[in-house]
């Protein structure tokens, strides 16, 4: 009796038979239809780190944009509060005429907050992501990793409960990516975030996630949902390493068999 109710309370996003197709050509009178998402249903639980993985072009970005309300589904529904979401796009998308601080403030400004009030908060968040010394740097003076840190800080400054991340570390080198992983997990814990993380990198997903949703190639369906109940922090002890390798192997097999 009480079990389903408590499960429901824990669900922050619920996708129900979500479909998406793009119609090529203007005014909807085009004849070429591209089915991208086909009948996706899953739930995102409060506080979890959920990853969505699938081949390139399968509709991961499209899915995330629908979750965030930037695009409409062709059928089906998403339930959940959009006010509590923030995006981290694949490209850092820093405004080139604004410095680090100005870029971090941008998200709050978009929500109508006065920059003067928000400044202290923005500085603190930038310190948290390791950019305390670079507040007045312009984007072209930053490395890719630093840009992604600003991108992350900017998203977190709107105090989201759900963070939607679209392959945010795909363009980073291995070392930078690893340190971003640690910071992201730290912030996830500290800010009690729910993260929906899109990726096509198996290792990364195994290291970060509580659950992984596997999508097939388009029109993409859910192939499998895997719980990763490895203890955290991961990737340190020998046990965890073996487990990681084993999980990665089974994922690789899975990916190859699709």
């Amino acid at each position: 009796m009480s079990a389903p109710a408590s499960v429901d309370r824990d669900v922050v996003l619920k996708l129900d038979r979500l479909r998406k197709e793009f119609v090529e050509g203007r005014d909807g009178r085009g004849d070429r239809r591209l089915e991208v998402l086909d009948d996706l249903s899953f739930e995102v639980r409060q506080g979890e780190f959920l990853s969505v993985i699938g081949p390139s072009g399968c509709g991961k970005t499209t899915l995330l944009q629908i979750l965030g309300g930037l695009d409409e589904p062709s059928a089906g529904s998403v339930r959940g509060s959009r006010e509590s979401m923030a995006f981290v796009f694949q490209r850092p998308l820093l405004l080139p005429w604004r410095n680090v601080l100005g870029n971090a403030l941008f998200s709050m400004e978009c929500q109508g907050r006065c920059a003067a009030d928000a400044r202290g908060e923005a500085e603190e968040m930038l310190r948290k992501v390791g950019l305390g010394q670079f507040l007045d740097y312009l984007p072209h003076q930053l490395s890719e990793g630093m840009k992604q840190r600003v991108n992350l800080a900017r998203a977190l400054l709107v105090k989201p409960r759900i963070l939607l991340m679209d392959e945010p570390f795909a363009s980073l080198d291995v070392d930078t990516r690893a340190s971003m992983h640690h910071e992201l997990l730290k912030l996830w814990r500290e800010q009690e975030l729910t993260v929906v993380f899109v990726s096509h990198n198996l290792e990364e997903v195994v290291f970060l996630s509580d659950r992984v949703v596997f999508l097939s190639d388009k029109p993409s369906r859910i192939r499998q949902v895997v719980e990763i109940d490895l203890p955290r922090p991961r990737g340190v002890g020998a046990d965890a390493k073996v487990a990681l390798v084993r999980l990665s192997d089974s994922f690789v097999e899975f990916m190859q068999s699709r």
């Binding site: 965030g68 930037l70 006010e83 923030a86 995006f87 796009f89 490209r91 998308l93 405004l95 080139p96 005429w97 941008f106 998200s107 400004e109 978009c110 929500q111 109508g112 709107v158």
Partner: peptide, 27 residues
Amino acid sequence: LDREYIQLARAFRASRGRILRSVILPS
């Protein structure tokens, strides 16, 4: 102007006026 900046502002739920002032005009 990169349209993705406008998408970004929209993702943060910026109003049209805000997008004009903070993204379009400066760029």
